[in-house]
Design a protein around this nucleic acid. Structure first.
Lengths: 220, 220
DNA sequence: TCGCTGTAGTTAGAACCTATAACGCCAGCC
DNA sequence: GGCTGGCGTTATAGGTTCTAACTACAGCGA
């Protein structure tokens, strides 16, 4: 995460402790969710008593924000790595699925229930844009079926030609934007419902849903 | 919600107070999310002091479970009503969108971040099945394009023919099941990301995404 | 090498929270 | 019309976040 090299001994120690705190925080979140995260409990686990932890994190919210940042960073790094060796949407989907499954609560920290007033800091939304950029790349790298070209333009197509704000300076066509967007919403729909347990007892294989959506996305 | 008629005066009063408590609980949740929900604060709002509220709800978790139940019930009633006058998937989608937008936190109470250990009571999963049944009805009532029939069977199609557990005794074809499922995951993907604010700043109209998915679902 | 300084730890305590216990009162039931 | 049980109270235990005041020592500069 944060590079401890090239710092003063004090800085190094500080970074080390912060990292250890976050490790324990992730454990707590994984087993009992964010609401159960207790600074007190963490402090005892790392061997200090209560308020000492506030030397490292100004508040519970700051710790959580840091965890959200790390989660985004992890996702961005993961998709970057997959994109490194030229990934299309299919490859990307399975990568994201694996990443989500590895720690469902981490996934929900990003894509789960929002806190009504909360607004993410700019550097976090910047990481989110990174992910979107990779998505657009993968979308552009994914070939279409023959039949796809013939379909007529939808209201969404027109809308995306006009409103290109979120692609930034990415040279994406409307079609590329469209597929990236639908890829995102569809994959999230499946992963979210699956990880939240809404498929339990249905005897349903979520991977087949992903496969289905991937072929659907090729054929328009 | 709960019918106060035909009960003893004590029962009637009890139901009334419980309902008032839940009203205040929903307000708190809507403005600050579930974690901020405080029994103490609610008790003061309804004019009683702290522990008195435990006469009506055994614990905070029980209150929340009750709210989840009411949320499911509300969703089921809403889709039932829409289905009453023969709704197809399109009609259903806008109905659910409106219901979700009316109280995003209510939506996330059902479809948001899960609590790792939590297992919903049977009567709640029963309501969930009700919703699925309406979805299957609407799916069956939605006509397909001509081109759709010619497409070859996917792994999902085969899977759904074998694993029909979740449809219960509903006489749904594999194609009906498939569309109901994809409708659910796709709509949830869009609504969830939208309500969580992941589209903010993107200058994107989520309704167009829904429209796009609805036409896509007709054409297979 | 020495002394200063600021960081990191301590305990105490305020202000919340959930939840239980013990007790009183009075409305509704028989 | 009396009994009883449900509803309210306060007190209390144990949990939380977070601030304040204080101490000790490690690292930094001279």
């Amino acid at each position: 995460m944060t590079d401890p090299s090239g710092q003063s001994p004090r800085e190094r120690y500080r970074v080390q402790v912060r990292e250890e705190v976050k490790r324990h925080a992730w454990e707590q979140i994984a087993t009992a969710g964010v609401p159960a995260l207790s600074l007190n409990a963490i402090a005892k686990q790392v061997g200090m008593s209560g308020p000492a932890l506030y030397r490292y994190f100004a508040s519970r919210d700051e710790l959580i924000t840091e965890l959200i940042r790390d989660a985004y960073r992890s996702l961005a790094d993961t998709v970057h790595e997959a994109a490194g060796d030229g990934a299309d949407l299919s490859r990307l989907a399975w990568t994201i699925r694996d990443w989500a499954r590895a720690d469902p609560q981490r996934y929900f920290l990003i894509f789960g229930t929002p806190v009504p007033g909360y607004h993410a800091p700019d550097d976090i939304t910047a990481i989110s844009s990174e992910v979107m950029a990779v998505l657009l790349d993968a979308s552009a790298a994914t070939s279409l079926n023959r039949a796809a070209a013939t379909t007529k333009r939808t209201p969404l197509d027109i809308h995306l030609d006009i409103h290109r704000d979120w692609v930034g300076d990415h040279p994406a066509t409307g079609e590329t934007m469209r597929r990236a967007l639908l890829f995102w919403t569809r994959l999230h729909g499946i992963l979210s419902l699956d990880l939240a347990g809404h498929f339990t007892g249905m005897n349903l294989n979520p991977d087949l849903l992903i496969t289905e959506e991937l072929t659907a996305l090729r054929g328009r």
